[in-house]
């Protein structure tokens, strides 16, 4: 499990660098974030939650059965309150979404 950062979308704010519990993300000379140590990612998704422009995707490594699905979240307005929408960009080009209402997110 690791992440990829879309250099085109990255605005260089450095928030992902600040929150990574392993300090694995660095900012390059073009003021863009990149993951310097991709194999050391724990998969905590802190960076994805922090990124203001949704430039970070995470994926399962091939060694643990990953098939290339790229995932991120966005906050969207729901009927009653903000909900978290998870996007799964599958290999065939299709996108699946799952909406989570934070108020109802913890059935188990």
């Amino acid at each position: 499990m690791s992440i990829i950062i879309d250099q085109g979308k990255c605005i260089g704010c450095g928030r992902c660098h600040d929150v990574c519990p392993g300090t694995l993300i660095k900012i390059n000379e073009n003021k863009k974030a990149f993951i310097k140590y991709p194999k050391d990612c724990w998969g905590c998704t802190s960076c994805i939650k922090e990124c203001p422009v949704h430039a970070i995707r995470f994926f399962l490594g091939e060694d643990i059965g990953g098939k290339g699905c790229k995932v991120h979240t966005e906050k969207v307005k729901g009927e009653k309150n903000d909900i978290v929408r998870w996007f799964f960009e599958l290999n065939d080009g299709s996108v699946k979404t799952i909406d989570i209402d934070p108020k109802e997110s913890n059935k188990y």
Binding site: G43, G65, C69, W86, I98, N106
Partner: peptide
């Protein structure tokens, strides 16, 4: 459905796995 959501909240890799496999 509840399981997929519960795992997204604490271990999203398992939900990805279910979606992929």
């Amino acid at each position: 459905e509840s399981l997929l959501k519960a795992y997204l909240n604490m271990a999203p890799s398992q939900t990805i796995r279910w979606i992929e496999n």
